[in-house]
Write a protein that binds this DNA or RNA. Structure first.
Length: 156
DNA sequence: GCCAACGTTGGC
DNA sequence: GCCAACGTTGGC
């Protein structure tokens, strides 16, 4: 089983990369989209690499990398009526929603902006850069992951 | 099972 | 603030 790579979106006003650094480990809870759920439940594994992207902000950018430190497990906030995203249909006995745990890896000294990424033809197949995609958990290739890291290092 | 209405995401 | 692109809901 080789390591996979992902891109996780987060609105920094809700949860930023700085928050992740402060917290050291975060339960990536609250994902309520079936496509993203399936990846969290089945495919996102401990040790996988994550590009951490800030959405709905300025500048839009990948701001660092993170590591998956726990593979998919049931999102217990779903059956907590006081949580941000309760779902009464999900129960401990038959969970619907899943999450993983993330830890920060590298904070980019220079964020890789969406505009910069769009200028790089190597990244043209990234789901993030396609029009209208709202998926908050996305697979990226090893090459795309490494290219974004390289772009960050290339910025003066 | 279809599809219109509605709500949300998120770039611009 | 606008609106395109989706996902979900619910009437039929």
């Amino acid at each position: 089983m080789s390591k996979r790579h992902w891109l996780f979106k987060s609105e920094p006003t809700a949860y930023s990369f700085e928050d992740l650094i402060k917290d050291e480990v975060a339960e990536w809870d609250g994902v309520r989209n079936y496509q993203a759920r399936n990846m969290l439940r089945d495919d996102v594994k401990e040790g996988d690499g994550v590009l951490f992207y800030h959405s709905n902000t300025q500048p839009l950018a990948v701001v660092g990398t993170a590591l998956v430190v726990r593979s998919g497990y049931p999102d217990h906030t779903a059956w907590d009526v006081h949580s941000e995203h309760p779902d009464p249909k999900s129960t401990p006995g038959s969970p619907i929603w899943y999450m993983v745990d993330l830890a920060p890896d590298k904070l980019f000294s220079n964020p890789v902006t969406r505009v910069f990424m769009m200028s790089n033809s190597f990244l043209s197949n990234m789901i993030l850069l396609k029009k209208g995609t709202r998926l908050s958990i996305q697979p990226v290739t090893k090459e795309e992951f490494e290219e974004v890291v390289r772009m960050s290092n290339s910025i003066q």
